[in-house]
């Protein structure tokens, strides 16, 4: 067992444990903290896969920017103070639908595992995932999707500005 594999097991365990804890924690703030832990663990997984750029982006965008906003909102609306509300009214079709979707996901994952396992382990090729090659790929072969996402994000930004503006 190599050191990398051992590290992978530990970090993977932390990621899964943090994700599970997030789902089951009652307090919004603790859920957010577990999610941050999960993001950090996933960033380490990226590092193990020789993708330092993705690891840094994962930390600065998800753990650094998005989760700070989450905590900001949790603190601002005082989601903790309100305590547990008396069983929020759930939509009746939600639970069966969730179960069906979960089964579909598990079957899909199992299918992939079984078919891929038969094909043998994937070739361990070394991919250059440094900032330069990622930038070239984004602006080169994936230029159109990149621009489309930019437009979508711009539309979302304009939408946020319009929604928060005070009506006179």
């Amino acid at each position: 067992m190599s050191a990398d594999f051992l590290l992978f097991l530990i970090v993977g365990f932390v990621a899964i444990a943090a994700a599970t804890a997030m789902l089951f924690s009652r307090s919004a703030l603790y859920a957010a903290l577990f999610l941050i832990t999960n993001f950090g663990a996933v960033a380490v997984l990226y590092l193990l896969l020789n993708a330092p750029f993705l690891a840094m982006v994962q930390i600065s965008v998800y753990a650094g920017a998005i989760m700070v906003r989450f905590l900001f909102v949790i603190m601002l609306v005082g989601a903790e103070r309100r305590g547990r509300e008396p069983e929020a009214p759930t939509l009746r079709w939600q639970r069966p639908l969730a179960i069906v979707l979960a089964i579909v996901l598990v079957v899909q994952a199992a299918y992939v595992f079984i078919t891929r396992a038969a094909a043998g382990p994937a070739p361990a090729e070394t991919v250059d995932a440094g900032p330069l090659s990622i930038g070239k790929t984004l602006i080169g072969s994936y230029l159109l999707p990149f621009e489309v996402i930019a437009i979508v994000l711009l539309a979302a930004m304009v939408g946020a500005v319009v929604l928060t503006r005070e009506r006179s």
């Binding site: 750029f53 840094m56 930390i59 753990a63 650094g64 700070v68 905590l71």
Partner: peptide, 25 residues
């Protein structure tokens, strides 16, 4: 020497805020 040094700096600075937020909360 790592090729993402400046990004590492931005990532760590971004995470550095949590101490203040958590203390306040």
């Amino acid at each position: 020497g790592i090729n993402v040094g400046a990004l590492y700096v931005m990532a760590v600075i971004g995470v550095g805020i949590y101490g203040m937020i958590l203390a306040g909360w």
